[in-house]
Measured scan of single mutants.
Amino acid sequence: MMAYMNPGPHYSVNALALSGPSVDLMHQAVPYPSAPRKQRRERTTFTRSQLEELEALFAKTQYPDVYAREEVALKINLPESRVQVWFKNRRAKCRQQRQQQKQQQQPPGGQAKARPAKRKAGTSPRPSTDVCPDPLGISDSYSPPLPGPSGSPTTAVATVSIWSPASESPLPEAQRAGLVASGPSLTSAPYAMTYAPASAFCSSPSAYGSPSSYFSGLDPYLSPMVPQLGGPALSPLSGPSVGPSLAQSPTSLSGQSYGAYSPVDSLEFKDPTGTWKFTYNPMDPLDYKDQSAWKFQIL
Rank of each mutant, 00 (worst) to 15 (best):
P165A: 04
Y191G: 00
G148S: 09
I162F: 05
L25T: 01
S204H: 10
Q96K: 12
L25N: 03
R43P: 14
W276V: 00
Q291E: 00
M225H: 02
P135A: 02
T251D: 02
T194P: 01
P172V: 08
R95H: 15
P21C: 10
K289Y: 10
G148P: 04
P224K: 09
G274Q: 01
W276I: 04
F278G: 00
G178T: 11
G231C: 13
E168F: 15
K93D: 15
A156D: 01
D134G: 05
L237R: 02
L16S: 01
L299H: 00
Q175G: 03
P79E: 03
A192C: 07
N77D: 10
P7N: 01
S188V: 07
P232Q: 05
A293W: 11
G148V: 03
P272M: 11
N281R: 15
Y11R: 03
P205A: 10
D24Y: 13
V157I: 11
K118V: 02
D265G: 15
G259Y: 11
L267N: 00
R95Q: 11
S212Q: 06
S203D: 04
T129W: 03
P108A: 04
Y208S: 04
A156F: 13
P227I: 11
H10C: 10
P240H: 07
V30K: 04
L51W: 13
Q103A: 07
S150H: 07
R115A: 01
A174H: 04
F278I: 15
D290E: 05
P224E: 02
Q291R: 14
V66T: 09
P7T: 12
R43H: 14
R95A: 13
S128Y: 03
S143K: 06
M225T: 01
P145I: 07
L253M: 04
Y221K: 05
P272D: 03
E42P: 02
S49N: 05
T45H: 06
W163N: 00
Y4M: 00
G230S: 02
Q28M: 14
D140E: 06
Y261V: 01
Q97K: 06
G255Y: 10
L54G: 15
G110S: 05
P107C: 05
K120H: 01
Q228K: 11
L51Q: 13
C94G: 06
P9T: 08
S235A: 08
M225S: 01
P227E: 03
A156I: 13
E71N: 07
P240F: 13
Q62S: 10
R82A: 14
A73Y: 15
A29I: 15
F269L: 02
T47H: 09
V131A: 04
N14Y: 14
P149L: 10
K88R: 15
P190F: 11
R119V: 03
M283R: 15
P133E: 02
Y63V: 13
S152F: 09
G183K: 10
P197T: 12
Y63Q: 15
A200E: 00
L54R: 13
P272I: 10
Q99N: 04
P127W: 06
T275W: 13
S139R: 06
Q297W: 14
S139L: 06
G209M: 12
R126N: 03
P165K: 05
Q28T: 03
V30S: 02
C202R: 11
W276N: 00
E71H: 08
P36N: 08
P147D: 06
S124N: 07
R95Y: 13
A56K: 04
S206L: 12
Y280P: 00
N77C: 02
Y288F: 09
F278M: 00
T123C: 07
P145A: 08
P244L: 12
Q39C: 08
Q175F: 11
P145L: 03
F296E: 00
T61Y: 09
Y11W: 11
S22T: 05
Y261G: 03
R82H: 15
T61G: 08
A68P: 15
Y63K: 15
S161D: 02
S262M: 14
V13L: 08
R91E: 14
R82S: 14
Q62G: 09
V160W: 04
V242A: 03
H27E: 03
F58P: 14
P107E: 05
F278D: 00
K277Q: 02
D290V: 13
L286V: 02
S241H: 08
N281P: 03
S252V: 12
T275M: 04
V66S: 05
H10M: 10
L54D: 13
L16R: 02
H10D: 00
S19T: 06
C132K: 12
P272T: 02
L171E: 09
S143P: 03
R41S: 15
E173N: 12
Y195Q: 00
A73D: 15
T129S: 06
D130C: 05
A29N: 06
L222T: 00
L229Q: 01
S128I: 08
E168S: 03
S139E: 02
S141A: 05
L146I: 05
P127C: 06
I298L: 02
R37A: 09
A73W: 15
S204T: 05
P224M: 14
W294T: 00
T154C: 08
R126K: 06
Q62N: 03
C132A: 04
S213Q: 05
G183Q: 03
E70L: 09
P190W: 14
V83D: 13
S216Q: 07
P79C: 06
L246Q: 02
K38D: 15
N6I: 12
T129Y: 07
P9W: 14
L136T: 05
A56C: 02
E268Q: 04
L286R: 12
A166G: 08
R41I: 14
S164A: 06
A189F: 14
K289R: 06
S223F: 13
P135W: 05
E71A: 10
S210R: 12
Q62P: 06
P127A: 11
G259I: 15
M5T: 01
A247N: 08
S22E: 00
F58S: 12
V180Y: 04
C132I: 09
S185C: 13
Q106T: 02
S152W: 08
L222M: 08
P240G: 01
F201A: 07
P170G: 07
A73S: 10
T123H: 06
L78Q: 04
S199C: 12
R126Y: 03
R98A: 02
A114W: 01
D271V: 15
P285E: 03
T251N: 03
S141H: 04
S161H: 10
L78A: 11
N6W: 15
N89H: 15
P244G: 05
V72K: 15
L253W: 05
Y67W: 09
A189Y: 08
Q175L: 13
K295P: 00
T279R: 10
Y288H: 02
G259K: 11
A181W: 15
R41K: 08
S206P: 07
I138E: 05
G243C: 08
Q62T: 10
A196D: 01
Y63E: 13
N281E: 11
R82G: 13
A3N: 00
R82W: 15
S152P: 11
L16V: 08
S266R: 10
N14L: 15
T154I: 14
R119Y: 09
Q84I: 09
T45L: 05
V72H: 13
P153R: 15
T44V: 11
S12C: 14
P21D: 02
T194K: 06
N6P: 08
P190T: 09
L18H: 00
G110K: 11
A198P: 01
L237V: 05
E80R: 07
T275Q: 01
S203L: 14
S213A: 12
V23P: 02
P144W: 09
L74R: 11
Y214R: 07
S49D: 08
